[in-house]
Computed example of a mutant assay.
Amino acid sequence: MNKKNVLTIRIPEDLKERIEKTAATQGVSLNQFALYAFTRGISDIDTANFFKKRIQGKTNESIEDGFKKVMGKVGKKDKIPTWDKL
């Protein structure tokens, strides 16, 4: 089992109230919601950094060309399935 650590943070009272309210709405403890929120935030930052590195030094034209190349492999779909229509 992973070793558990304690992290104490200071946050404004109104933010704490919002966190508590959201956790209650989700039916989870404050701790569980905080873990989820931290994990989600870190994942979002990691994802953004991954894509920043992938496009670093590339021009918009080269990115668009790469996109068109990949989409060309997919092929055109003439009929849209019923479940995929708005």
Rank of each mutant, 00 (worst) to 15 (best):
M1L: 06
M1W: 03
N2D: 03
K4C: 04
V6G: 05
V6C: 06
T8F: 00
T8Q: 02
I9N: 08
R10M: 06
R10A: 05
I11Y: 01
P12K: 06
P12S: 09
D14T: 00
D14V: 02
D14H: 05
L15N: 07
L15A: 10
L15R: 04
L15T: 04
E17K: 05
E17T: 10
E17L: 12
E17M: 09
I19H: 01
I19C: 04
I19A: 00
I19M: 04
E20Q: 09
K21C: 06
K21G: 08
K21A: 11
K21T: 08
T22Y: 04
A23E: 01
T25P: 05
T25N: 13
T25F: 12
Q26V: 06
Q26G: 07
Q26N: 15
G27C: 07
V28K: 00
V28S: 04
S29D: 08
L30S: 07
L30M: 13
L30V: 06
N31Q: 15
N31T: 15
N31M: 14
Q32C: 10
A34T: 06
L35S: 03
L35P: 00
A37E: 04
F38A: 11
F38W: 01
R40F: 00
R40Q: 11
G41Q: 04
G41A: 05
I42M: 03
S43K: 07
S43Q: 09
I45P: 05
I45A: 14
D46G: 08
D46E: 15
T47M: 02
A48G: 04
A48C: 10
F50N: 13
F50I: 11
K52E: 14
K53E: 12
R54V: 15
R54S: 14
G57N: 08
K58L: 14
K58W: 09
T59N: 07
T59I: 10
T59R: 04
N60A: 14
N60W: 12
E61S: 15
E61D: 13
S62R: 10
S62T: 10
I63P: 02
E64G: 08
G66H: 11
G66N: 08
G66M: 07
F67M: 11
F67Q: 14
F67P: 00
K68I: 01
K68G: 01
K69Q: 10
K69C: 11
K69G: 04
V70I: 14
V70A: 09
M71T: 13
K73S: 12
V74L: 13
V74I: 15
K76L: 15
K77A: 15
K77F: 09
D78G: 14
K79L: 10
I80E: 13
I80V: 07
T82K: 07
W83S: 09
K85F: 06
K85W: 05
L86M: 10
